[in-house]
Amino acid sequence: MKRTVLSLLLLLALLLPLPSRADVIFEPMDDFYAAHAEQCEYVNDRYLSPGGVPGVVSPENPSELCVFPSGWELDISFQYEDAQGVVWGVYEEGEESCWVRLDALQKIFDGADFQEKYADAIQSYAGEMDDVSLPEIVYLWTYPGSGEIGGKLLAEEIAQADTPPYDAVYLDESGQTWVYIPYFYGMEGWICREDPGSADLAATAPEALAEKPEVEPVITTLPAIRPLAAAGRTRLYLTVGAVAAVVAVSAVLLAVFFRRKKR
């Protein structure tokens, strides 16, 4: 038996999967995504729930996992279009995930939307930053006038670049010049040429100032209740109960069947 045991274990060790290289984009740890990755599109969009929007197991399994309250922001990394043309987005909370119909949510205007909407007004970079003395920290904004910081860079890093990372320029209605960085040290966004070091630029773009839908605030007196985590806790308790029941029944059966043999 020893030889058999060792042989089988050695055979299995040879079959272990080799480690694979990690992707730069983190893929969801979701079973449906894993099975349909090639049909999913990376979007990295943000949505707002108007309230009462269900998160389900998958586009093919309507079992409800949670309900998103009004005002809840969802970060959607990947989307999937089913055979009926419905577009679903995968939402994650830690290791938990669910799928949501994107037509039930309101998309939050972002940098990609800005570039699409104002494509005609965006010009190629022509050295607008050449005579600007950058402060130590330079702030990137998601789009001109968004009022939302998308990241920050060190002036030293920009100065040491082989070529300036600037790609495009936009002049807003108040006359401020915004310079676009498509990718630099993992960051993307717009620098305000007139005030690159300020972290307090107010929202001025019409889209940022647009009246948000009337939503009730998410509970803030306690740690924010994450819809998926809350629903997941209930299922976890049920699973633990089922496991305990199986263990208890097995212990009883062991005592019954093997005690009789000892008599």
Binding site: L65, T239, A242
Partner: peptide, 9 residues
């Protein structure tokens, strides 16, 4: 915990 845990077990 995702919905697949009971199935995985």
């Amino acid at each position: 915990m995702d919905a697949g845990l009971p199935g995985r077990l």
